[in-house]
């Protein structure tokens, strides 16, 4: 098992190669911000970055990660203007309700603005519809992404 690079720190873990990254993060390393929601990449609550790309940690065997850089919601850098803009927009617009899906939503939204600085509604829908929210905060997520994009413009 290669050493995992998580939020810039190396971690050595002793688990079977088929163990999804999510459970290494949560149950072995205690990094709890990425959430378990479905286990089949349908809900997006477990979204993390691997080499900067948003992936579902519940469905990524740790044996396939290799030495690529993993960023969890804990590793989002507030010095990054996009991270700061998204998180501030989420707070400003009071997006959260139960909050369980929101670290995943924030990860997806930050990834979206990195590639698409001023997304249309359609682009937001395209990028965010894989992240489920049972409380139904979609309206505010959409608005907050626009708000953040406006702050960054």
């Amino acid at each position: 098992m290669p050493t995992l690079m998580i939020n810039g720190q190396p971690h050595s873990v002793d688990v079977d190669a088929d163990t999804p990254l999510l459970w290494v993060l949560r149950d072995i390393l205690g990094l709890n911000a990425a959430k378990f929601g479905c286990g089949i990449a349908q809900c997006g609550a477990c979204t993390v970055y691997v080499d900067g790309k948003a992936v579902r940690a519940c469905n990524l065997p740790v044996g396939l990660v290799g030495e690529r850089a993993i960023t969890t919601p804990e590793g989002l850098d507030m010095a990054d203007p996009i991270v700061r803009a998204i998180k501030s927009a989420w707070v400003e617009l009071d997006v959260v309700q139960c909050g369980y899906c929101q670290p995943g939503q924030v990860m997806a939204a930050v990834a979206l603005l990195r590639t698409t600085p001023n997304p249309t509604d359609e682009q937001i829908d395209s990028a965010m519809s894989g992240n489920m929210c049972r409380c139904g905060t979609y309206m505010r997520i959409r608005a907050a992404i626009h708000h953040a994009a406006g702050e960054l413009a």
Binding site: G44, A54, N59, A108, T115, S126, S129
Partner: peptide
């Protein structure tokens, strides 16, 4: 992730149910 058209039901369903694993360009996410 922002590249899927959202103008048909199939495209919207792909964005919600499929792109989480397959990515909009089909190259595989995880």
């Amino acid at each position: 992730d922002a590249s899927l058209p959202q103008n048909s039901r199939g495209a919207r369903l792909y964005a919600s149910a499929c792109a989480g694993c397959h990515l909009p360009d089909g190259t595989g996410r995880q």
